[in-house]
Deep mutational scan, measured.
Amino acid sequence: NSASGPLPDGWEQAMTQDGEIYYINHKNKTTSWLDPRLDPRFAMNQR
């Protein structure tokens, strides 16, 4: 992992069949290639 600590509440790390890691936001029912622990847009929304 490139980030430390647990994923934010509602997020899950998953892997594609090709072995690529992505992240699932169960609250918004969206997915992201960016780790939410590193995404400044997500961090701003949590303050």
Rank of each mutant, 00 (worst) to 15 (best):
K29I: 01
L38G: 15
D39W: 15
N45Y: 06
D9S: 09
D35W: 01
N28W: 15
I24R: 05
N28M: 15
I21L: 08
D18E: 13
E20T: 04
K29Q: 14
S32Q: 03
R37I: 01
P6Q: 10
D9N: 10
Q17Y: 07
I21K: 11
W33G: 02
F42I: 11
Q46Y: 10
E20F: 02
A14R: 10
E20V: 03
A3S: 12
S4N: 09
K27N: 10
T31W: 00
N28Q: 11
Y23N: 00
E12A: 06
M15N: 12
Q46T: 10
T30M: 15
Q46V: 10
G19D: 06
R37V: 03
D9W: 05
T16L: 04
D9I: 05
G19R: 06
Y23G: 00
P40Q: 15
P6R: 14
T16A: 07
S32D: 01
Y22S: 00
L34S: 09
P36M: 03
T31S: 14
L34F: 13
A3Y: 14
T31P: 00
Q13P: 08
P8H: 07
L34P: 01
G5V: 12
S32Y: 02
G10F: 09
A43F: 12
M15K: 13
R47C: 04
Y22M: 01
R37F: 03
Q46N: 14
A3W: 05
A43M: 13
F42V: 14
A3Q: 14
Q17L: 09
G10Y: 07
E12D: 05
P40C: 12
W33T: 03
S4E: 11
T30K: 01
L7W: 04
G10S: 07
I21M: 08
L38S: 15
A3T: 14
I21Q: 09
M44S: 10
S4K: 14
H26G: 05
M44V: 10
D9Y: 06
S2Q: 13
E20I: 03
E20H: 06
N28T: 08
N1M: 08
K27G: 11
G10T: 06
N25T: 01
N1H: 00
D9V: 06
P6I: 08
A3G: 11
N28L: 15
L34M: 07
I24W: 02
T31H: 00
R37S: 06
E12F: 04
N25K: 01
R41V: 15
M44C: 07
F42N: 13
M15E: 10
Q17D: 14
N1G: 07
L34T: 07
M15G: 04
L34E: 03
F42A: 11
S32G: 02
N25E: 01
Q46F: 09
P40Y: 11
I24H: 04
L7D: 05
G10H: 05
A14T: 11
W33P: 02
P6F: 07
N1Q: 00
A3V: 15
S32T: 15
L34Y: 13
L7E: 04
P6Y: 06
Q13T: 12
R47N: 12
L38C: 15
M15W: 09
D35P: 04
P6A: 13
R37C: 04
Q46I: 08
Q17E: 11
G10K: 05
A14E: 08
W11V: 05
Y22P: 00
R41A: 15
D18N: 13
R41L: 15
A3F: 13
R41G: 13
I24F: 03
H26S: 08
A43D: 12
M15R: 13
P8V: 07
P40E: 14
N25I: 00
L38Y: 10
N1S: 03
D35F: 02
W11G: 01
P36D: 00
R47D: 14
P6G: 10
Y22G: 01
W11R: 01
D39Q: 15
K27Q: 13
W33H: 04
T16C: 04
P8I: 05
S32P: 01
S32N: 02
P40V: 13
P36V: 02
